[in-house]
Amino acid sequence: MLGEFNTCEKTVGAQVRLESLVRGDVLYKKRLSEKSEITVDIPKEGAIKS
């Protein structure tokens, strides 16, 4: 992910949060650094049951 506002400003300090659609758990939560760039491995989850 690369964070940037529509004003082309960097997103230093913005919080990135990935949440499971299956269980609702927070899978990843971290603030962006000076580079405004992170790489996250997203775990696979089972299919959503209706």
Score class of each variant (00 low, 15 high):
Lys30Trp: 03
Arg31Lys: 13
Lys49Gly: 00
Val22Lys: 12
Val26Lys: 02
Gly13Asp: 13
Ser33Tyr: 10
Met1Asp: 07
Gly24His: 10
Leu18Cys: 10
Gly3Arg: 05
Asp41Val: 12
Ser33Gly: 15
Glu34Ala: 13
Lys35Asn: 12
Thr11Leu: 04
Ala14Ile: 04
Thr11Trp: 05
Lys29Val: 04
Tyr28Asn: 14
Leu27Cys: 09
Glu19Asp: 09
Glu4Met: 12
Thr39Gln: 08
Glu4Lys: 07
Ala47Met: 07
Ser50Leu: 11
Ile38Trp: 01
Arg31Ala: 09
Arg17Asp: 06
Asp41Gly: 05
Lys49Ser: 10
Leu2Ile: 02
Val26Asn: 00
Met1Val: 05
Asn6Asp: 15
Val12His: 07
Ile48Leu: 15
Thr11Gln: 01
Lys10Gly: 13
Ala14Phe: 00
Gln15Gly: 04
Val22Leu: 15
Arg23Thr: 15
Glu9Ser: 14
Glu45Cys: 08
Phe5Asp: 02
Glu4Ser: 04
Cys8Tyr: 06
Ser20Glu: 14
Glu19Gly: 04
Phe5Ala: 09
Thr39Arg: 05
Gly13Phe: 04
Asp25Arg: 03
Gln15Lys: 06
Lys35Phe: 04
Glu45Ser: 06
Lys49Val: 13
Val12Asp: 02
Asp41Thr: 14
Asn6Val: 13
Val40Cys: 04
Lys10Asn: 09
Lys10Phe: 09
Ala14Leu: 04
